[in-house]
């Protein structure tokens, strides 16, 4: 009982779950780690940010979070637009534009994250 839309929707839910976990980790590190004493110093300091970007786990986590957030957000935006009773042709055009926008934003974001990581690691 699978359709293209049910697959897209399932990925939307999966992306939501991924965001919940990764954003939770991000928020914990940014706002609560200091409170619990697990990280020393200011997490927003340049040196701290660079230190995290050196860590491959963090780099991968942020790339995955970027992908999940982009997919979740753009699929949600597509749903909102589709509910405005637009034509099928307009729906196809919007889907293509959103895919292009998503891929472009992902490439920019992933490049930024990995480039900093590579530069820091001296790769």
């Amino acid at each position: 009982m699978r359709t293209r839309e049910s697959t897209l929707w399932t990925w939307h839910l999966v992306a939501g779950a991924v965001i919940l976990v990764l954003l939770g980790i991000h928020m914990f590190i940014m706002h609560l780690a200091d409170f619990f004493g697990t990280v020393q110093g200011d997490v927003l300091e340049f040196s701290s940010v660079m230190e995290r970007s050196l860590d491959a786990t963090f780099a991968v986590m942020y790339v995955v979070l970027l992908a999940a957030a982009l997919y979740h957000g753009l699929y949600g935006l597509r749903n909102i637009i589709f509910e405005l009773s637009i034509s099928e042709r307009a729906e196809r055009v919007i889907s293509v534009l959103l895919v292009l926008a998503g891929v472009a934003l992902f490439l920019v974001g992933a490049y930024g994250t990995l480039a900093v990581h590579s530069a820091q690691a001296g790769v």
Binding site: M1, R2, E5, S6, W9, N79, F82, E83
Partner: peptide, 17 residues
């Protein structure tokens, strides 16, 4: 007939909206 209804019911303007 579950599979025969899926294109409409689970389509772009089906349950997921």
């Amino acid at each position: 007939g579950r599979d025969e209804r899926k294109d409409e019911a689970l389509g772009t303007h089906g349950v997921f909206r």
